[in-house]
């Protein structure tokens, strides 16, 4: 018995754009349930790679396969199985949010019945119910981003290709989006996320890839999400902060006069740090994930490349 094909496979796929090699040949296989975080500086080729994966562009050489089917030969395979959110979430400004989502559903060949189009569910999950009658042309970036996500999710695709999905989202919405994507992945969807944010990758991805100057320089699974966070206080009362955070964390290390490194207890959400400090009358200036192996790897690969270029 042969193994089922991977959900998405890039077989030495490359792409030339405007006469320049935007993406060197890439080999990549993503099974169902995988969440890949694609990292890279601006111009590294992330968006080009995503457009190849979504079937928007055909590879100049090599193949892109969706469930074993060559996307260049059968672009119609994208219709049912791929949800794509381009960078900056473009929308048709003259449509309302509801019309936008329905238009995408119709383009995917779904009929308007609630069974086929889980419109209410998707709008509610993305906090868009109250905006459904609003014209897309007047939405903020974060709202537009959520509309773009709703359009990408409406047909429950097996492959989600998301270019900077966290753009413009506030922390609460970003957290909801993480939950939603984890849930989709748990149901078997393969998700590719392009982002600049290492903590976004570390907090939700099962695998990370780093692109630099169009070449894939790193591709490895992420073993676990980080639980070390750097807390920067406004008033420097670190002793009291340590006492407040003690119930939430396994260990706390003082790094500077107003900075702590906090390792969270297993199962305790980092979102509890801010309310705990604020309710104790302490001010919080910053909360960021501590440097991790991925951050070090990224700095080494991209920074090394930059140093080489500078030399």
């Amino acid at each position: 018995m042969t193994a089922p094909p991977p959900r998405l496979a890039l077989r030495l796929a490359s792409r030339v754009r405007a006469g320049r090699l935007a993406l060197a040949p890439i080999d990549l296989e993503l099974p169902p349930g995988e969440i890949l975080g694609l990292l890279g500086v601006n111009g590294a080729g992330k968006s080009t790679a995503l457009m190849l994966m979504a079937g928007v562009l055909a590879p100049t050489s090599g193949r892109v396969e969706l469930n074993g089917t060559d996307l260049s030969e059968h672009p119609e395979a994208a219709r049912d199985h791929i949800g794509y959110l381009p960078e900056l979430a473009p929308v048709w400004p003259e449509l309302t949010v509801q019309e936008q989502v329905r238009a995408h559903a119709r383009l995917r060949g779904l009929r308007a019945s609630p069974r086929q189009v889980p419109e209410d569910d998707v709008l509610e999950r993305l906090d868009l119910t109250s905006l459904r009658k609003r014209l897309c042309g007047v939405l903020s970036l974060g709202q537009r981003q959520r509309v773009g996500l709703a359009c990408a999710l409406i047909h429950n695709p097996g492959l989600l290709v998301l270019d900077e999905p966290g753009n413009g989202l506030d922390p609460v919405q970003a957290s909801r989006l993480r939950d939603l994507l984890r849930e989709r992945a748990a149901n078997g969807a393969t998700i590719v996320i392009s982002t600049h944010l290492l903590n976004e990758v570390e907090s939700q991805c099962t695998r990370a890839a780093i692109l630099d100057k169009g070449s894939l320089l790193f591709d490895a699974p992420l073993l676990r999400a980080p639980d070390d966070w750097i807390v920067t206080l406004g008033d420097g009362d670190t002793e009291r902060a340590q006492a407040v955070l003690a119930p939430l964390s396994g260990s706390i290390t003082m790094l500077a006069r107003s900075q702590l490194r906090v390792r969270m207890h297993a199962g305790v959400d980092v979102d509890r740090i801010a309310p705990a400090l604020l309710s104790a009358g302490l001010s919080l200036r910053g909360l960021a994930p501590a440097a991790t192996p991925l951050a070090d790897t990224f700095a080494r690969i991209v920074g090394g490349g930059n140093q080489a270029r500078a030399a």
Binding site: L57, R79, I82, Y84, P86, P90, L107
Partner: peptide
Amino acid sequence: RAGTLPLLLAQGLS
């Protein structure tokens, strides 16, 4: 110009 052409191409439309 609006960036919506990729949305159509991503639907598998030729």
